[in-house]
Design a binder for these strands. Structure first.
Lengths: 339, 339
DNA sequence: TAGATTTGTGTAATCGATTACATGAATAAT
DNA sequence: ATTATTCATGTAATCGATTACACAAATCTA
């Protein structure tokens, strides 16, 4: 029960050759029906399992794809991975996961390891601190499809799947405008990141499109945590004309915002409306549920997988696909004002 | 830049043999220093990457481990995976992820695929609906280390890492007792699962140890969602002697409990204390933060990885390790009563 | 200086599956 | 009856790296 059974073992038992066994198992047409059946039965009896490594070495296809994210245990990324795995598993691909911990060095190491492991493709979200792109080029030089999701590095030959952050920012802000809020502030994340810039642009455009005045002091760039939200509120409420609504690029910041507003006696959403971004799981479990923008993460993962598959299918053609998914504004308690 | 460089290419360029190149690259002692350096330089110049598939086929070690969970995007599992990956990546292992979607069939398929892929080990949490174990036996027959985490299937030869659910249940209940609660109810999950039975036993033991009366009508078996918590509260409050504290085996249920209690005018934690289980992320973001039992998931993942590594190291000896981690009671708002 | 030992390198087998090519037997065509 | 064709199967190369074994040259020993 212990040693591994190969086609040679089957061949020996049947006094035939490994080639015949291989052909029989692969339903090759020029093999006699009797032999085919015999081989199948014997294979099952001997508990034969095809060695995918040998196959991979021979064919050059490992049927493994690498997925690289900053951290697996962030709900955003784990949902994307779920989408990827759901899509690729039924097609015979296995998904190799690695985390960069947001460092460029680990990203580089990981890509090297995956290339050594002969993966058939790499789907990834770029680390926040990645400044170079030679490791990405190396992937392309090896003719391995590379697909970025969410965070991308702009370069030729790479497909990407992102959400339309501009639209997300626009929709969220527009929703606040429709509620009658005239003074809408925005708390952004690190503006050196594309995603935050785009959300900000969406916010700004919505303000201007509505004929409201765009006020630069209403725009705060901050870290992505609860404290940052609290600090921001303290700052904003001290302005000559304090805002009466906030669109935050982060749910965590928005949570801090709501906490501080309550602390300072505001009634959310009657006096002050808040919309976050990301649809973190906790937002729907809060006592006052939070309005936010859903990034359809599972969809994003599935789409990334599909783009990869398409690239595999047409490996001759260089495809450079840019997919932009529409985010979904989710209106909940923190902005459900009765008009 | 396109074709892959092998040791044969290097050998040809240097007019030597592949064996020499291989030895040089592996720092084999009986190779001249000059040749070693020459090979290293040439390899770097030609951008040589070792083909791990060939190595894996030759050595029988793929350096891949399979990790199987019901769903990746549950925070509980993604944290465990994070722990596993953090531990195994630096040691050169890659982690292949698969989801069972809680079905036995996918679990069986996945195990077969992983065995075909020649993984060096399988770390998994058993699907809720798994009733047979022949697929696990197949893993052991192949001499592949198998480690269960959280949910295990009791069988010989398999190591497991679980948390001490009994202690978790005991600690949570005991904490409520210390707060002076005399009528403590328990909402359990599906009692056919070991983990829920153990939490229940911990609860019961704590009650009895404290000399309180164990009341079977205070024990409710329910689904793991918010509604179930609400329903349970309605039931419990209609009892002749309603409880004044609840230990729930699920944070989601506990959330429903707290919502319903507030709705019915109770002041948590002054009138009624609640403790959940799992330390789901949302529990610390609630307005009234929730007391719960942390399952040290990252630790569990790391421990599972270490058990695997130990098994690899002593592959001759059959180890059957049962690791039980201590859960951590986290006291927050929902049971922070001033005494 | 002859023999023993060390050192560095090459040859070829191996891991397991696939497949181009060859071959012998059976069958069809003329 | 003889040649042509089809069919089923075997032989051997291949994928890329490792390694036991062999062997020549260099060095050491007595």
């Amino acid at each position: 029960m212990n040693e591994k059974v190969t086609i040679y073992d089957i061949a020996k038992k049947l006094k035939t050759s490994a080639a015949t066994v291989s052909r029989a198992l692969n339903n090759n047409p020029n093999i006699s029906e009797s032999m085919r059946q015999l081989v199948f039965e014997t294979a099952k009896k001997m508990n034969y399992k095809q060695n995918k490594l040998a196959l991979a070495l021979k064919s050059g296809k490992s049927n493994n794809v690498g997925v690289i994210v900053p951290y697996i245990d962030r709900s955003f990324f784990s949902s994307i991975i779920r989408g990827i795995e759901d899509e690729l598993y039924p097609r015979g691909y296995r998904v190799i996961i690695s985390q960069t911990h947001e460092t460029e060095q680990k990203e580089i190491d990981t890509i090297n390891m995956l290339l050594n492991a002969q993966v058939d493709g790499i789907l990834m979200s770029v680390s926040k601190f990645t400044a170079t792109n030679s490791h990405f080029k190396r992937v392309l030089d090896n003719n391995i499809p590379l697909v970025f999701f969410d965070r991308r590095y702009k370069m030729k030959g790479v497909s990407s799947v992102v959400i339309d952050d501009f639209q997300g920012g626009f929709d969220a802000t527009n929703h606040l405008i429709k509620l009658g809020c005239k003074h809408i502030a925005h708390i952004s994340g690190d503006m050196s990141l594309e995603i935050y810039r785009n959300r900000y642009e969406g916010y700004k455009t919505a303000i201007e499109d509505a004929g409201l005045e765009f006020n630069p002091t209403y725009v705060i760039e901050s870290k992505n945590d609860i404290e940052a939200g609290q600090t921001a509120v303290d700052f904003l409420l001290n302005l000559e004309t304090p805002p009466n609504a906030i669109f935050s690029s982060s749910d965590y910041v928005a949570l801090g915002v709501i906490q501080k507003l309550k602390e300072r006696g505001f009634n959310v959403p009657q006096d002050f409306c808040v919309v976050g971004f990301s649809n973190e799981p906790f937002t729907k479990f809060m006592e006052l549920t939070m309005s936010t923008v859903d990034q359809c993460t599972v969809e994003m993962g599935k789409m990334a997988a599909l783009v990869f598959l398409e690239q595999v299918k047409n490996s001759k053609i260089k495809i450079e696909k840019k997919v932009q998914l529409s985010p979904q504004l989710i209106i909940r308690g923190s902005s459900s004002k009765k008009l």
